[in-house]
Design a protein around this nucleic acid. Structure first.
Length: 252
DNA sequence: AAAAACGTCAACCGCTAAAAG
DNA sequence: TCTTTTAGCGGTTGACGTTTT
C-alpha cells in the first residue's frame, strides 16, 4: 500500500476472500458511493477503489459499472440509424473488435454495441440459417443492408420539398458518404459499399432493388430495425448476383 | 389468465497484455 | 529478468420485462 492509498484507509482492509463479495445488480446506494469516490479520486486503480470506498465489490466490477453506466459521457437509449450504419461498416472492417468500434461512437460502450450485434444482427443471420461470419452474410450486409440503411438515412434527412438535404447529413457522393450526428462528423467508407451507379441525387434510389442473373430486378424489403424479413433477399439468384458483384470488386 | 417463448441488457468470467515492483 | 498486479477485451450468462400461445 502506498501513501495515496493509506490516506484513505479507515480500517484494516480485508482480502477478497475474507469479505463477502457482492455480485449482481448494483443498488442506488452502491452507484452513489462509487460515483462519489471516482469523482473525488479519479478513475483507475480499481482494486483500490473497491477496497477503499467500502463497496463490497471486486475492482473489476467497479470498473465495469463506471465505464458502462456511471460515466457522465455514457449515452443510453436507442441506437440511431447513423450509429447502426457505422457499426455495420466498422464490423465489416474490424470484426468483433467491440472496444475499437465503440471508440468511434462517442458515448456508446463496447458492451452496448456487442449486445446490439448479438440481439439484432445475429438474429437475422440465424433466421437465414447462416453463420454471422460467413461470406454470404457479409455479402448481403455489404450489398443490401448497408445501402438500405443509407437510403433510410437519406430519406429521413430529406426536406419537406422532397429535395435531399445537404445540411443534415452532408453531401453524398459515390466515393464517400458522410453525415453528422450530435457527436460530430462521421464518414462512411465506400469500400464496404457496392458501386453506386449514379450521382449523389441517385442515392435515394439505390438498390434495395438488385439486378439478378436473369436480368430482372428484384425488390428487397430488408430493413435492419423495421422488423421486415430478410428471407426475400436470400435466394439463389440474389446470392449469385452478390457473389458476382464481389468478384467484380476483387478484380478491380 | 397463465405459461412458455423470446428479447434485451447488465454483469460476470476467463484470458491476455501491459505496467509495476 | 522474473513475478505479481492491474486494466482491458471479448464471450457468455442470467435476470427481468414483453410478447405470443
Amino acid at each position: 500500500m502506498d501513501a495515496y492509498e493509506s490516506s484513505f484507509v479507515s480500517e484494516t482492509p480485508q482480502s477478497e476472500e475474507e469479505m463477502d463479495v457482492r455480485k449482481g445488480p448494483w443498488t442506488e446506494e452502491e452507484d452513489f458511493t462509487l460515483k462519489a469516490y471516482v469523482n473525488l479520486h479519479g478513475e483507475g486503480r480499481w482494486n483500490s477503489v473497491a477496497r477503499l470506498s467500502g463497496l463490497k465489490r471486486t475492482g473489476k466490477s467497479c470498473r465495469l459499472r463506471w465505464l458502462n453506466y456511471l460515466r457522465p459521457e455514457v449515452r443510453r437509449g436507442n441506437i440511431s440509424l447513423q450509429e447502426q450504419l457505422l457499426i455495420l461498416q466498422l464490423h465489416y472492417r474490424w470484426g468483433n473488435r467491440w472496444s475499437k468500434i465503440a471508440q468511434q461512437l462517442p458515448g456508446r460502450t463496447d458492451n452496448e454495441i456487442k449486445n446490439y450485434w448479438r440481439t439484432r444482427v445475429q438474429k437475422e443471420a440465424k433466421q437465414l440459417k447462416c453463420d454471422v461470419n460467413s461470406k454470404d452474410f457479409r455479402d448481403a450486409m455489404r450489398c443490401v443492408w448497408i445501402p438500405r440503411l443509407i437510403e433510410r438515412i437519406c430519406a429521413s434527412s430529406e426536406s419537406p420539398s422532397g429535395q435531399p438535404s445537404t445540411t443534415a447529413y452532408g453531401n453524398i457522393t459515390t466515393s464517400q458518404i458522410s453525415y453528422e450526428d450530435t457527436s460530430g462528423s462521421v464518414q462512411v467508407d465506400s469500400s464496404v459499399l457496392p458501386e453506386l451507379s449514379g450521382t449523389s441525387s441517385d442515392v435515394s434510389n439505390y438498390p434495395c432493388s438488385l439486378q439478378t442473373r436473369s436480368g430482372s430486378r428484384s425488390e428487397y424489403l430488408w430493413n435492419i430495425d423495421g422488423g421486415e424479413s430478410m428471407e426475400s433477399v436470400w435466394n439463389e439468384e440474389n446470392i449469385w448476383f452478390l457473389r458476382q458483384q464481389l468478384y467484380d470488386d476483387d478484380l478491380n
